[in-house]
Simulated assay, not measured.
Amino acid sequence: MTILRMTTEAEATGLTAQIYDDDRRSLGYVPSHTKAMSLNPEAFLAWESLTKAISSSLGLRRYELVTLAAAQAIGSSHCRLAHGKKTLSIMSEEELLAIARDFHDAGLSEAEVAMMDYAVELCTDAAAMTDADTQRLRDLGYSDREIVDITMAAAARNFISRSVLAMAVDLDVPREMSEELKSALLTPLFPLKVPGLGSIT
């Protein structure tokens, strides 16, 4: 449990109230991680502006797949649950369940799996990555801009996920999420086998 004194929804004004309203519209509730990061609302809005620029360029499906893979590699239950909820707006629960359990065996295209593998590598050992990692994405049809977008999406997830984990922010379970999906999103999938790296634990 975090020691931070967060602004309640009833107390929120100005930029903080705006941030809370945005989450109520997109998620149906205001999670604790939003309340924690909104203690500096200007910085939080700047980060949201960055992620919106990335997702609008990359496309929502790709952005959410990269985010789910990155959050899993980081060990961020907060982001897995929040983005699992968001992903249900663009795919069925059945498809998301398969991805949450093992995206390598979820019927995704080879390009989508490679993109998610790349996100996992970035979030676990970015210093070990080489041109071979980006070349794999290029060989599967991604443009240089798309490769940069995928990289920035995964890297941006590290900022929010690791910040929330470091501050021991409470975990909120999205409303109306099935127990089966919640369990799949919260179950670690390690070791992850990534081409070129083998098993990541």
Score class of each variant (00 low, 15 high):
K52E: 13
A53Q: 10
E48Q: 15
P41I: 05
A70W: 03
Y63P: 00
R25I: 09
L65Q: 05
P41H: 08
A43E: 08
A70F: 06
L65T: 07
A36M: 08
T51S: 04
G28F: 01
Y29N: 14
A73N: 01
R61N: 04
E48W: 11
A70H: 04
S57F: 09
S55E: 14
Y20H: 02
Y20Q: 01
Y20M: 02
D23V: 02
K52Q: 15
I54P: 00
A53G: 14
R62N: 04
H33I: 01
G59W: 10
K35Q: 15
D21L: 08
A69Q: 10
L39W: 11
I54R: 01
K52G: 12
E64M: 12
Y29I: 15
D23A: 06
A46L: 13
Y20E: 01
K35A: 13
L39A: 14
R25G: 06
R62P: 00
L68R: 07
Y29L: 15
L27I: 05
S57I: 11
T34W: 00
R24M: 10
L50D: 05
A69M: 10
Y29K: 13
E64A: 06
Y63H: 13
S26V: 13
Q72K: 15
L58Q: 05
Q72H: 15
E48S: 13
Q72W: 06
N40T: 06
A46T: 14
Q72T: 03
L50S: 10
H33P: 01
D23I: 01
Y20W: 02
M37S: 07
M37N: 07
L58R: 06
S76T: 11
S57C: 11
P41A: 06
A71N: 14
L27H: 02
S55D: 13
L58E: 02
Y63I: 04
R61C: 04
D21I: 03
S49C: 05
A36L: 07
S76N: 08
Y20D: 00
A69H: 08
P31F: 08
G59S: 11
I54D: 00
F44R: 13
P31T: 09
D21A: 12
A69E: 10
G59N: 11
K52N: 14
R61F: 02
A53C: 06
W47M: 12
D22R: 11
R24C: 09
P31H: 10
Y63V: 06
E48D: 15
G28Y: 01
A53K: 08
I74S: 07
L50E: 07
K35H: 10
L65D: 03
S49D: 06
E64C: 09
A36K: 01
N40A: 10
S32G: 11
R61H: 04
L27G: 03
K52V: 07
L45C: 04
S32D: 12
I54Q: 00
R25E: 09
E48G: 14
A46S: 15
L50K: 09
S56H: 09
H33M: 08
I74L: 14
S38G: 15
G59D: 12
S49P: 00
E48T: 09
E42L: 06
L60P: 04
D23T: 03
R61T: 05
L58K: 09
Y20R: 00
S55W: 12
G59P: 13
V66T: 10
G75V: 11
G59A: 11
S26D: 15
N40G: 04
R24Y: 07
E64T: 04
Y63R: 12
E64H: 12
L39H: 14
T51R: 05
V66R: 05
E64P: 01
P31I: 08
H33V: 01
Y29T: 15
Q72I: 01
L60A: 11
